[in-house]
């Protein structure tokens, strides 16, 4: 236990934690959206995220930037990030919809019990991860540094890097947009209706199939955004990065209360912070263990998460 590191590094650890937590929150939203509507843990969501990291990598590659390139100037960097955000989210969104169409829709038609869905999801997750593994020769792939590496701002013991700021800002912006979408638009109303009572919603003329596809698409888009920032922070990606991210994002969703959109945000940020502080205390080797222990303890004492469950009942 190293309390000195924790106290001295507190401001920095908080920034790091918030940036990492925003990424968790973005991925967690994908779990929460699908769970809210289908009561299903979309096990393959982690691979949707992983595909996003590769989409970003390939986009940059096509635009002439690979891990050996020098850092571009700020304008180019912003353009690169913007393009990759669009490409990666669309790609991830597409993958998510394919997963829905192939692995879940046939089961819905057959009225399969929940366990069968979960297993099909596990199958889908494996196919995606291993296909990417085969395609990339299971190698880790480097990702170019894009945003400036110098601190944006440094005062006393507190340093903020451009990437961290960008991550938090974009993540928050995207999440506000989602909140608006779900609570204010016609599509959002459909989502909430299906979440509360799918059959009644269908009888009232909501196209359930379309709502479900939309929910998968939304989750995929968010995972794509998360994937871009994750890749830039990590500096590399691999066919199996989805698994750990998936577990943690799911933990974040459960922490906040699965099915609850704002819960995903709270859970994600909280998990990011806890990990960051925990790593300072116990050493970075134990980061992943800390996340699970937190999840376990929370589930024991508050099985419905911090903000409670349900996409329908809580105001979106």
């Amino acid at each position: 236990m190293n309390f000195d590191d924790l106290i001295q590094g507190f401001p920095d650890l908080t920034t790091t934690g918030l940036a990492q937590g925003s990424i968790y929150a973005l991925v967690a939203l994908g779990y929460t959206l699908v769970y809210g509507v289908l009561r299903l843990i979309n096990f393959a969501h982690s691979e949707v995220f992983m595909f996003g990291t590769f989409a970003a990598l390939w986009t940059w590659g096509l635009m002439g930037y690979d891990s050996n390139s020098a850092r571009p100037d700020l304008g180019t960097a912003l353009l690169l990030v913007l393009v990759s955000l669009v490409v990666a989210s669309l790609f991830s969104g597409g993958v998510a919809m394919v997963v829905e169409a192939v692995a879940y829709r046939p089961l819905r038609k057959r009225n399969a019990p929940p366990l069968v869905f979960l297993i099909s999801a596990i199958g889908a997750s494996f196919v995606l991860a291993e296909l990417m593994g085969a395609f990339t020769e299971r190698r880790q792939q480097g990702i170019p540094g894009l945003l400036p590496g110098e601190p944006l701002f440094s005062a006393g013991g507190w340093t903020v890097y451009p990437l961290q700021l960008a991550t938090v800002v974009v993540a928050l912006a995207v999440m506000f947009a989602l909140d608006w979408f779900v609570s204010k638009t016609r599509f959002g109303r459909g989502i909430r209706a299906v979440a509360q009572d799918a059959d009644t919603a269908a009888l009232m003329g909501v196209n359930k199939g379309r709502v479900i596809a939309l929910v998968f698409l939304l989750g995929g888009l968010l995972a794509g955004v998360a994937a871009v920032f994750y890749s830039m922070k990590q500096g590399n990606t691999r066919f199996n990065v989805g698994f750990l991210m998936g577990l943690k994002a799911f933990s974040a969703a459960v922490l906040g209360g699965i099915g609850n959109l704002r819960g995903a945000l709270v859970g994600g940020l909280l998990l990011g912070l806890v990990e960051s502080y925990g790593a300072a205390l116990f050493g970075s080797n134990w980061t992943n263990v800390i996340a699970f222990v937190v999840l376990l303890v929370l589930l024991m004492f508050r099985p419905t998460g911090l903000l409670g469950e349900s996409l329908g009942r809580a105001r979106a």
Partner: peptide, 25 residues
């Protein structure tokens, strides 16, 4: 310039993953 390993042992997770979906359906 990518070499894809297509031996049944290395593809088995793809195969069994897909099989899981097919069997569940």
């Amino acid at each position: 310039n990518i070499h894809i390993d297509v031996s049944p042992t290395s593809l088995r997770f793809v195969i069994f993953g897909a099989l899981l979906i097919v069997v569940m359906i």
